[in-house]
Deep mutational scan, measured.
Amino acid sequence: MQGVVKVNSALNMRSGPGSNYGVIGTLRNNDKVEIIKEVDGWYEIRFNGKVGYASKSYITIVN
């Protein structure tokens, strides 16, 4: 499943599904990501070869 990031500035990509996990990357508005699965309001995603987590509130699913 594919998604597009929708933010005003930047979205942190984290090592786990929560804001208490470390930041491993930064996503920008309109970045395209691969959604692997949903975990407690977060998406596990793949972006630029990295796998991490981002809040699903800021990612819109596209077909």
Rank of each mutant, 00 (worst) to 15 (best):
Y43T: 02
F47H: 15
E44A: 06
L11F: 06
I35E: 00
S9M: 10
I24C: 04
I36W: 04
Y53S: 01
A10R: 09
I35V: 11
I36T: 07
V62Y: 09
G52Q: 01
I35S: 01
V33P: 03
K32Q: 15
S55Q: 14
F47M: 08
I24T: 11
G3C: 03
S55T: 11
I59Y: 01
G52H: 01
N20V: 06
K6I: 12
N63S: 13
T26C: 06
I35N: 00
E38A: 07
R46K: 14
D31Q: 07
V33K: 00
I61K: 08
N20Y: 12
W42F: 08
V39T: 09
Y43R: 00
E44Y: 05
K6W: 03
G18H: 05
I36Q: 09
V33W: 02
E34Y: 06
F47I: 12
F47N: 05
K37P: 00
L27M: 10
S19Y: 10
G18E: 03
G22P: 13
N8Y: 06
S15C: 05
A54I: 11
N8T: 14
K37F: 08
L11M: 11
K32M: 15
K6R: 08
E34T: 04
A10L: 11
A54F: 04
L11H: 08
L11I: 12
I36C: 04
Y53R: 00
T26D: 07
A10I: 10
G49L: 07
G25I: 08
S9R: 09
Y58R: 07
T26L: 10
Y43L: 12
Y58L: 09
L11T: 09
A54C: 05
K6Q: 14
Q2F: 10
G16Y: 02
K6C: 07
I45T: 03
R28C: 05
I59C: 02
R46V: 15
P17L: 02
E38S: 07
D40A: 07
K6P: 02
V33I: 09
I45F: 06
L11C: 06
G18N: 07
A54Q: 03
S57F: 08
M1K: 08
I35M: 04
Y58A: 14
V62N: 09
L27K: 01
A54M: 08
N20K: 08
E38F: 06
D40V: 08
G16M: 02
K50D: 14
A54E: 01
R28L: 15
G49H: 15
Y58T: 11
K37I: 08
K56L: 08
G16D: 02
S15M: 09
Y53V: 01
S9V: 10
D31R: 03
E34H: 06
N48C: 05
V39P: 00
K56S: 11
N30M: 11
W42L: 02
A54T: 13
R28T: 13
W42T: 02
F47G: 05
G22F: 10
T60W: 11
K6F: 04
I45Q: 00
P17H: 02
N48D: 12
P17V: 03
G41H: 07
A10C: 06
E34I: 04
V33L: 06
V39F: 08
I24G: 02
S15T: 10
S19M: 13
E38V: 07
Y21L: 03
S57R: 11
Y21N: 05
G41E: 11
D31H: 05
K50C: 05
N63V: 14
D40I: 06
A54G: 07
Y58I: 06
T26F: 10
I59W: 02
K50P: 02
E38G: 06
T26E: 15
L27T: 03
I24K: 04
E44W: 06
M13K: 01
G49F: 06
S9A: 14
G16H: 03
R28V: 15
P17K: 02
V39Y: 12
Y43F: 13
N20M: 12
G22R: 07
N12R: 08
E44R: 04
F47T: 08
K56D: 06
A10M: 13
I61F: 07
A54K: 00
D40K: 08
M1F: 12
G49A: 08
S15L: 10
N29R: 06
L27V: 08
K37D: 09
S15Y: 07
F47V: 13
K56Y: 05
M13S: 02
L27R: 01
V51K: 10
V5Q: 01
V5P: 02
Y21S: 05
V62G: 09
G25N: 08
D40G: 09
Y21H: 12
V7F: 05
R14L: 15
S19Q: 10
K6N: 15
M13G: 01
T60A: 12
V4M: 09
I24V: 14
V23C: 05
I59T: 02
G22D: 15
V23F: 04
S15R: 06
P17R: 02
R28E: 14
M13F: 12
S57G: 09
K50V: 15
N63E: 15
N12L: 10
T60I: 12
Y43N: 01
A54R: 00
V4D: 03
S57A: 14
Y53P: 00
Y58V: 10
N8I: 13
G25F: 07
Q2K: 07
K37E: 10
N8V: 14
Y43C: 03
T60V: 13
L27A: 04
E34N: 04
G22W: 06
K32C: 05
S9I: 11
Q2G: 09
V33D: 00
I61G: 06
D31Y: 05
Y53G: 00
G22C: 05
N30I: 03
E34R: 03
E34S: 05
N30P: 03
G25M: 10
G22Y: 09
N8S: 10
S55V: 13
V7Q: 05
M1W: 11
R46A: 15
R46S: 15
V39S: 07
A10Q: 13
S15H: 09
A54H: 01
W42M: 03
V5R: 01
E34G: 04
I24H: 03
G52K: 00
K32R: 10
D31G: 03
P17C: 02
G25Y: 07
D31V: 06
R14C: 04
G3R: 02
K32E: 13
M13Y: 06
S9C: 05
G3D: 02
V23W: 05
E44H: 06
K50A: 13
D40Y: 07
G25R: 05
A10T: 10
G16P: 00
T60R: 11
V4K: 08
T26M: 09
Q2P: 09
N29K: 07
G41L: 08
R28Y: 15
N30C: 05
A54V: 15
G41V: 09
I61P: 12
